[in-house]
Computed example of a mutant assay.
Amino acid sequence: MSRPGPRNLITDVPGLTVGNAEDRDVLTGTTVIVADEPSTAACSVAGGGPGTRETDLLRADTMVEQVDAIVLSGGSAYGLAAADGVTAKLGAMGRGYGLKDLPGVPKTPIVPSAILYDLANGGNKAWGEAPPYRALGEEAFENRAASFPLGNVGCGLGANAGAHAGGLGSASLRTNDGFTVGAIAGVNCFGSVFMPGTTSFWAWPYELNGEFGGHRPGADYECDPEEWGDAKMNPQPGQNTTIACIATDVALTPAQAQRVSQIALAGFARAIRPVFAPFDGDALFVLSTGRVALEEPTPIQLTRIGELAASTLARAIARGVYEADQKSAA
Rank of each mutant, 00 (worst) to 15 (best):
G29S: 08
G29L: 07
T30D: 11
T30M: 08
T30H: 03
T31P: 04
T31W: 06
T31Q: 03
T31S: 13
T31I: 07
V32E: 01
V32G: 04
V32Y: 03
I33T: 03
I33Q: 02
I33H: 04
V34M: 09
V34L: 11
V34N: 05
V34E: 01
A35G: 06
A35S: 15
A35Y: 03
A35T: 12
A35R: 02
A35F: 08
A35C: 15
D36F: 01
D36L: 08
D36Y: 07
D36H: 14
D36N: 14
D36V: 05
E37V: 15
E37T: 11
E37W: 11
E37G: 10
P38D: 05
P38E: 06
P38C: 13
P38A: 13
S39E: 02
S39N: 06
T40E: 10
T40H: 02
T40M: 09
T40K: 00
T40F: 11
T40L: 07
T40G: 02
A41R: 07
A41P: 01
A41I: 14
A41T: 15
A42F: 04
A42D: 00
A42I: 06
A42R: 14
A42Q: 05
A42K: 09
C43P: 00
C43G: 00
C43D: 05
C43H: 05
S44M: 12
S44K: 05
S44Y: 01
S44C: 11
V45W: 09
V45P: 01
V45S: 06
V45K: 03
V45C: 09
A46V: 12
A46S: 13
G47N: 06
G47H: 03
G47F: 00
G47I: 00
G48R: 13
G48T: 09
G48H: 10
G48W: 05
G49R: 04
G49A: 15
G49V: 03
G49H: 13
P50M: 04
G51F: 01
G51D: 00
T52E: 06
T52P: 01
T52N: 15
R53E: 11
R53I: 12
R53Y: 12
R53K: 10
R53Q: 10
E54M: 14
E54G: 12
E54Y: 04
E54F: 13
E54N: 10
E54S: 13
T55V: 15
T55Y: 03
T55C: 13
T55W: 01
D56Q: 10
D56H: 15
D56S: 14
D56W: 10
L57V: 14
L57S: 12
L57Y: 04
L57G: 06
L57A: 15
L57Q: 05
L57E: 02
L58A: 08
L58R: 04
L58D: 00
R59I: 04
R59H: 09
R59L: 07
R59N: 14
A60P: 08
A60K: 09
A60I: 08
A60T: 14
A60M: 14
A60R: 10
A60N: 04
A60G: 07
D61S: 10
D61K: 05
D61T: 11
T62H: 14
T62F: 12
T62Y: 08
T62N: 14
T62D: 09
M63F: 04
M63A: 12
M63G: 01
M63R: 13
V64Y: 07
V64F: 00
V64M: 11
E65A: 08
E65V: 05
E65D: 10
E65K: 13
E65H: 12
E65L: 00
E65P: 00
E65M: 08
Q66A: 15
Q66C: 11
Q66I: 07
